[in-house]
Write a protein that binds this DNA or RNA. Structure first.
Lengths: 144, 144
DNA sequence: TTAAAATTAATTGTGTACAATCTATCTGAT
DNA sequence: ATCAGATAGATTGTACACAATTAATTTTAA
């Protein structure tokens, strides 16, 4: 029988990426539950806190999500009162997302999350910085 | 207005992990389409190629997936003729997954995928090795 | 000017993920 | 021997993720 060493899970890059990504989202869950946000809703709100107002298109570019994913997320966030959705006057095709006062206030309640998450990760800072740098490098060289 | 630097997407570890993971899966898609496999089905088959026979429980431990995810994946792989599902004689609770001849042959057709994927990633080998090492370290220190 | 092409969201369909619950089976302590 | 607890999968419900298609609007080029 052939022994395809390169087909072993432990030798792939994809698999630890996939596992680590899911694990981080899992670790966020109890923290995000208190804000009534899912992980996808959380990163959407992070983009909104940073930019205050964005079109759905711009949001998709920032988050690497298409309208099939974003449309229901934005409708949910609107239902929760954190954002408003309205068509652009300039271009009726474009959907403008803006923060509500409640959405803005949520940022205060979210402010402790990055630090709380940091405490969950038992790796030294140097490794985390390297990991962060290499992931960004991977994104920059591999996407699109 | 407060400026929560640590809440910016670019300063998170979670976000590049999430984006890179999705991006890698997206890059696999055209290669896996030829095998009639999704990414989740592919890593399941990789575990099977490595072990020949596993219980659903063991598969879940290897892949970090629970029965809610695995049950439909395994039923699909059975329908495609790549694995067999049968209850253990020793313990009726346990579901034994084994490779069919077709499932085994699929490994030959999958053998070129790791190399093809490698060519899609435009990062030097040293960085990729470091990334691989740090992701495994992250998995080992952060999960469970 | 106007018809074709491009752009933006929304919709549809498939396939995960995972928490929570359920069901069947097995194990162990009395 | 038996029943309480543990264990293994299956099921249910919610929420993505994304490809493909659709619908509405805008842009562009003949």
């Amino acid at each position: 029988m052939a022994n395809y060493e390169q087909l072993r899970l432990r030798n792939q890059l994809c698999f630890p990426l996939y596992v680590c990504s899911k694990e981080v989202v899992r670790k966020y869950k109890p923290l995000l539950d208190e804000l009534d946000l899912t992980y996808t809703q959380y990163i959407t709100m992070m983009a909104m806190w940073e930019h205050q107002q964005l079109s759905a298109k711009e949001l998709g570019n920032i988050l690497y999500l298409d309208s099939g994913t974003l449309t229901p997320v934005l409708k949910t966030l609107e239902k929760k009162g954190f954002v408003e959705r309205q068509r652009s006057k300039d271009d009726e095709r474009s959907l403008i997302i803006s923060l509500t006062p409640e959405g803005n206030e949520l940022q205060d309640r979210a402010a402790y999350i990055p630090e709380a998450m940091g405490k969950c990760i038992d790796m030294d800072l140097e490794d985390l910085k390297t990991l962060h740098r290499l992931l960004h490098k991977f994104m920059d060289t591999s996407i699109k």
